[in-house]
Design a protein around this nucleic acid. Sequence first.
DNA 1: AAACCGGGGCA
DNA 2: TGCCCAGGTTT
Length: 379
Amino acid sequence: MTSSRTPSQSTDAISESQPRYRDPEFSAALIAWQKQHGRHALPWQQSDDAYRVWLSEIMLQQTQVTAVLPYYQRFLQSFPSVFALAEASSEQVMEHWSGLGYYTRARNLHQCAKLVVAQYQGQFPSDPVLLQELPGIGRSTAAAISAFSYGTIAAILDGNVKRVLARVFAVDGYPGSKPIEDALWLRAQALLPQQDIQAYTQGLMDLGATLCTRNSPSCERCPMQTRCLAYAQGRTAELPVRKPKKLQKHKQALMLVLIHEGQVLLEQRPDSGIWGGLLSLPEIGGMRDFQATEVLAMSEQLPAARQLFGQFGELTEMLALPDFSHVFTHFKLHVTPLRASISKRHAMVAEARYVWTDMAKISSAALPAPIKTLLLTLA
DNA sequence: AAACCGGGGCA
DNA sequence: TGCCCAGGTTT
């Protein structure tokens, strides 16, 4: 089998096992640019103390530099070492994080400090593989910490770096997808310099944060301009490829509007789930997923509606009111309100979760906004 | 209103 | 293992 290999196959096999896309000029240009034009005055750049580097990297996840600055300073004052942080109470830590957002970061931070003290005598490991086992530290953050603190040559790949690489190498496809992300990690690793890893890593971050921005990048000042494929192809606006918008989920619900002598029938919703614990209109069949192209098959549900209404009075008429919809974070709810009239209200209410409520009190009742709006138009 | 985001958590 | 989410900010 080996003897049948063509020369080109052999070459491919070799290049597979070695870093591909090697390009020493890329790192050289980036390092030179960083030293001259990059950011050097940030507080966490004044030390290679792993504790400070780690703290800054965690704070900078999903948070901009300007927002982090005051928190970083205050945090260091109160917790000057990993030991101080490990010994602090959760309340103290959360207090200092309060306002930064993404509070699981703070919980992971505290837990991580305790682990570093317990497992590593307060010394953050220099091996990115070990760093990555700690809570709140992923592959990219581990590489950044070890590079800045110990000079370890390891690749980062955060959102800024993805954007830079996708543009410079005109990488098509959504960078969040597995194959594209894998390809970008390969690039990031192959491009690593043999020295100046701090300036290189900082340069990647600076370039993405200051010049190679999402919108209207400053290509005229970019050290990569002559080698940027997206620039050459006039595609900086379309690269990196945006996340494919996930198709909207739709749910439908049939809701009953039973109004009699100035009162409306409401139902207490379960504590969990949408509109948890609020009063709402009684619902038939629950909220069901449906395709946007489908038409609500209301006729199938009319018997159930008739039966429910019948518990509360002598049904005389039912008619569908106009549909309305309401957008939630994860789906769009389409509601068909079904209006009923009764000639006489039964004395007994079938279940305690149903309550007759004065229409005059609707505006001050704890109802979901779209339901309240509907009822107010009927009042 | 819609895109974006590193890591965690869960199918 | 791979996908999706929570919980924020920015455009």
